[in-house]
């Protein structure tokens, strides 16, 4: 859970930084998207690095979902008779929404790949012009896309708030002071990532990026 999660978090950071290049203008962003296909050349043939990265990410996603499913099945088996009266949350809300939050994020990622990677669900869907695709995607008339996107990012933020802390704990974070630091770091990290991912659609929505 922790190891695959950390791999995905590394991707999220890199992807967020890449997305923010949208503020540097159309040419720079499209150039960046094309460069993604050339990383590793001339050592590797073009797009090989991308495919290696995609393979690693897919393995991490499958590992992450596999471990989560195992934990959920164990949890279900560990309490065959449910409580008639159950206090909802004593600990952290984020921790209690990990499973459904994860499902929402997965649905979003599938939609998102069909939208911006393959272009099938994108109004423009031009593989040569990712900048145009993003702008067309979050156009004000398509507010529902932005809404769904925002919900998915908030779910991601909650997921990371608990996930980042929990990963550190699973890897042996063990002092009370360290726990306070780890929780604070996870919170700040989740907020920064949410903000970084949300500025792009809202910049398109408000016409800052056009």
């Amino acid at each position: 859970m922790a190891v695959t999660g950390i791999l995905l978090v590394l991707f999220l950071v890199a992807h967020m930084l890449g997305n923010l290049k949208i503020f540097t203008g159309e040419t720079a962003f499209d150039h960046y998207a094309h460069w993604l296909r050339d990383i590793g050349t001339p050592l590797l043939p073009s797009t090989w690095f991308l495919w290696i990265q995609r393979t690693v990410l897919l393995a991490a996603v499958l590992g992450h979902i596999g471990a989560a499913t195992l934990l959920a099945l164990r949890a279900r088996a560990a309490r065959p008779v449910r409580y008639a009266h159950r206090k909802k949350v004593n600990g952290s809300y984020a921790a209690r929404t990990m499973r459904w939050g994860g499902v929402i994020i997965l649905l979003f990622v599938i939609y998102h790949i069909l939208d911006l990677t393959t272009g099938h669900l994108n109004p423009q869907g031009d593989p040569g012009n990712p900048y145009g695709n993003v702008v067309a995607d979050f156009a004000p008339a398509r507010w529902y896309v932005t809404l769904f996107y925002t919900l998915a990012i908030v779910a991601l933020g909650l997921h990371l708030r608990h996930g980042a802390f929990s990963a550190l704990r699973s890897l042996g974070q063990q002092t009370p002071a360290g726990e306070r630091r780890a929780r604070a770091a996870a919170l700040v990290f989740a907020i920064v990532l949410c903000a970084g991912y949300l500025v792009v659609p809202f910049a398109v929505l408000t016409g800052l990026v056009a």
């Binding site: 934990l71 164990r74 949890a75 088996a77 309490r79 004593n90 600990g91 921790a95 990990m98 929990s166």
Partner: peptide, 8 residues
Amino acid sequence: GGCTNAGE
């Protein structure tokens, strides 16, 4: 069950 650091 397995621990997920939920803290309850």
